[in-house]
Design a binder for these strands. Sequence first.
DNA 1: CGTCTATTTGAATGTACTCAAAAGCGGTGG
DNA 2: CCACCGCTTTTGAGTACATTCAAATAGACG
Lengths: 196, 196
Amino acid sequence: MVYNSILSNVTRHISLSEEECLYFTSLLEYKEVAKKSHLLKEGETCKSISYVHSGALRAYCIDNNGKESTIMFAVADWWITDMYCFVNQLPAMMYVEAIQGSCIFQLRKDALDQLLNTMPKFERFFRILMQNAYTREQLRVIQSLSLPAEERYDNFILKYPQIAQQVTQKQIASYLGITPEFLSTIRKNKSKRFLS
Amino acid sequence: MVYNSILSNVTRHISLSEEECLYFTSLLEYKEVAKKSHLLKEGETCKSISYVHSGALRAYCIDNNGKESTIMFAVADWWITDMYCFVNQLPAMMYVEAIQGSCIFQLRKDALDQLLNTMPKFERFFRILMQNAYTREQLRVIQSLSLPAEERYDNFILKYPQIAQQVTQKQIASYLGITPEFLSTIRKNKSKRFLS
DNA sequence: CGTCTATTTGAATGTACTCAAAAGCGGTGG
DNA sequence: CCACCGCTTTTGAGTACATTCAAATAGACG
């Protein structure tokens, strides 16, 4: 059943009756998105949060100098959106793009509000989701402030091996906050050291 | 009434009856902490989350090279803890220290769990707390990756003027991920430009 | 008043960036 | 199926941002 993976994602944190599952899934919109297509662009209102059933997406933003920074990757079983603009229904600061052909379930803001009001146990689910996202970002801050680029790269590969396989070096570089040229030199130095 | 500020912090997001207020406040532990004393040290179990009634606290960690990184400041009306270790009841990775004499309310993990189970509306409150913390950290990541130190400093002063007044430059530097020496030169350059 | 820590200053160094150009690779159309 | 196009990756030289180390000065606190 198509809903298996998203339901097991949810029931990892809260338990649902059959009816509750039905109600929850009735709020979802299934979508297939082509590689390189955008779910969201800067300035648009961010209407939905997306669960990745399969494929891979990426959220990024572009600063005043045109520099791109990758905010997050989302592979199978991850949730992704421009959270700040989604919850406050403000114009998006981010782009969300499919980096692989992907299948996703979208939950619109009004549907989420309805879900939270009619089934309060989903408050717990999203509390835990937010809690995990928060602690993950906090760790990332500390690492970006205290570790040199090479160690940040090592940690990324260790922590997200499956993501590292699916994205380009340029995208990893923009996630780590370094230039693609510099990531290339880092990798060259690593293999040099490895050979000697 | 001493509970006014914490109750208005909570009722900013959820509404509480008088009874509910009483129950919630009965779970809190009031504490006065001296400047420079520690609420939490690395390796200890993080038993509580703290609401700052007055004063100022700071969370930081120390890496393998002995370098200190400030993770967050908390002034009046903020919540602070080592969230990851608190929710998972693991040995703390952080220190939490009072940088001013402070009055706080602490909520222990078991009391929080009880609160969430008996009054599910608190799930919503903490969901929103986590949501805000998440989006705040996400913004910080982007800025730490894409902006030079001087702009990060400007943004910090703009965003948290009341914090900037209460903490040392060394602590701000460790929040921004730069050395105190470099923050000093940044400030020198700013005043130089300002005078000319 | 003396001690301890924070801040400032400067010189030497290192990490990471910019710019430019070449090489590699994937997809698309002839 | 091959050739070409555009994008990614590599490489190198020169530069800029930020660090380290050391020493002097200033402030806070008992």
